[in-house]
Amino acid sequence: MTVSSSLLAQKKDDILARWFELTLATYAPETAVLWKKQKDRFANPVAYRFKTGMTGVLDEMVKSSETPTAAVFEPHLDEIVRVRAVQDFTPAQAVAFIYLLKQACRDTLWKDVSENGRFTELFELESRIDVLGLICLDIYCKCREKLFQIRIDQINTQYSRLLKRAGLVCDFAPEAPES
């Protein structure tokens, strides 16, 4: 375990709790209350996905102090970004939750950092979070692209067979298998 991850490891659970709280605060208060309270993962998928994703991110952050890579972090961040990508947020709002991790870290670790002069570690940690921000941006764009692709596909599946039958499009492939 290297420096900044050890800093994180001290108070991982507190940071997780704070991060979750800060993120839910980006929703309407009556919604946030509900999402915090209902614990059933099927009745309350939003909170479940957020919790799972956040726990995953923090676990990986503790494991290594390397610069985060998409290969490791994408599955965890995807849990959160995929939901926020369709939730009526602007792109900035949708991915801003990752910077709330910074705030959660400062809120939770500041005492230790300032008393023991562990600023380098905090900066290092924050730089890693910045990289996470970039990964989130990629995921967000992928989700939105998928959304638009879905809309195009929808139109295609609605009309393609009609066009084919009407003889308006020609088909060179011998009955391509569907998937």
């Binding site: 605060a25 980006t26 929703y27 309407a28 208060p29 009556e30 946030a32 900035a92 709002q93 801003a96 910077y99 709330l100 910074k102 705030q103 400062r106 500041w110 005492k111 300032s114």
Partner: peptide, 20 residues
């Protein structure tokens, strides 16, 4: 406890709906 500088990337976005 020393006060840390406000995280700038946060202050520009209004996250929560006011309780109207």
């Amino acid at each position: 406890m020393a006060k840390y500088p406000p995280p700038e990337e946060l202050i520009k976005i209004n996250y929560s709906t006011p309780p109207t």
